[in-house]
Each structure stands twice: as C-alpha cells, then as structure tokens.
C-alpha cells in the first residue's frame, strides 16, 4: 500500500460530481438547442429547453453554494497560485506533461493537505471557476429572463451579445472539461485520481 493522505472533504466531492453531471446535461441540451435541425439526432427541442432551464438553475444554485462553502471552509485559498515563482512552476508542470510523463518521470508536484493543486491547476481552475463560470451563469440567467437584456445593439437584437457570451463561455467550459477529464488519468495510476475524487484519499 502506498502512502495516503485524506485530501478532499465530502462536500467537495459531492459538489464536484453534481457539478460534473449538471455540466454534461447542460452541454448535451445546449448543443441540441444551438444546432437544432430536423436532420440531426439531438434531444427534442422543447425537452432540451426544459432540461436546460432546470439544469441551469440548479447549476446557479450549486455555484452559489460552492462559493459560500469555499469562503466558510477557507478552501478558496487552494485556488490562489502562490508566488514566488508561479510561472516557473507552471513551466515545470507543462514540461512534465510534454515530456517527463512519457518517460515515466515522477510527478513534479507533490500534493499536500495544505496545497492540493499544482500551479497550473490552480490558475486554470481559478480562471474557469471565478472568471468564466460567473459569466456563463449570468448570461444564462439573462437568457432566462430576457427583460434584463439590452433592447437593441448595433441595429440587432439586444439578446445577441448575451447569447454569444453564453455560447462562447459554455464552449470554453466544455473544452476545459475534455482536458480536465483527460488530465484526471495522469495520477499515480490511470484511475487513482478518479478514486480520490470518490473516496477523498490521495495516493502519492
């Protein structure tokens, strides 16, 4: 048995999997709405709209809980990349993904209870969770209550910028998710990081 540390409290794990399921639901229904076409085998439009609205509201609520819980528990500190040498550490991490990982070199960053993200992770999670997510959620809310959208812009409907913002930030989150899931396989073994997210224990 290798060394283990208890890394992730239950609330983070519950939040994480609910978040993941909601985003997958929103991705599938969002694609069905945007690319709606009688010839494409997507989720039926009105069902997609209904599921997307329910899922969207659930994600907004979940995000609010996430922010509050992060403040209360102090977990937000994990997302802050700590100077000095943030860029240098990012570079080390990136180099490992580009080379070391293929040569079977050990992970350059050792996870601890105090800091469970490497610098690259901290920055990308920070950007996604505190910059892109809020824009995506807010634009989704305006979409749901279009009276809050500007009336007109550049001779076009005022909902257009909201829709584009929503579409692009939604796409950014989906791209992030693809990479995120894949990087989940780069732990001690292919499955060990997924196990951590389920039982909370990290294997070095």
């Amino acid at each position: 048995m290798s060394e283990r540390i208890y890394l992730l409290p239950l609330w983070i794990r519950l939040w994480h999997w609910t978040n993941a399921l909601l985003i997958i639901l929103l991705m599938i229904t969002g694609i069905s709405l945007h690319f709606a076409d009688p010839k494409l085998p997507l989720v039926e439009f009105s069902l997609a709209a209904r599921l997307h609205q329910i899922g969207g509201l659930a994600l907004v609520a979940l995000y609010a809980l996430f922010v509050v819980a992060n403040i209360v528990s102090g977990n937000w500190w994990q997302y802050v990349p700590k100077p000095p040498g943030v860029l240098a550490r990012c570079w080390v991490q990136a180099k490992w993904y580009m080379g070391g990982i293929f040569r079977g070199e050990p992970h350059p960053y050792r996870v601890s209870e105090e800091a469970n993200f490497n610098a690259l992770q901290a920055i990308s999670y920070w950007v996604i969770m505190y910059m892109i997510m809020p824009v995506m959620l807010l634009s989704g809310l305006v979409f749901l209550f279009p009276d809050f959208a500007p009336d007109r812009l550049f001779g076009l409907d005022g909902l257009l910028p909201v829709a584009i913002l929503h579409y692009v930030t939604g796409a950014a989150i989906v791209l992030f998710m693809i990479i995120h899931v894949y990087l989940g396989t780069t732990g001690a073994t292919v499955t060990s990081m997924f196990k951590t997210m389920i039982n909370g224990w990290h294997e070095h």
Binding site: H34, D157, L159, Y167, V168, L175, I178
Partner: peptide
Amino acid sequence: LSNSYVIGATRHPLLDNILIGLAGLTLLGV
C-alpha cells in the same frame, strides 16, 4: 436578428465552425 435572437435560427456559421474545430482539436490532442 434585427428584431429577435431566435435560438437555432440566427446562427454564426464561422463561429460555429471555429468552436467545433477547437473541440475537435482538443479531443484529438488528448
């Protein structure tokens, strides 16, 4: 679009292609 943004009808094909392309490249990359 002069009056209404209609989901599914008022699309931007170039933006769609860029995003589909990015998603494809990301998948291929991983």
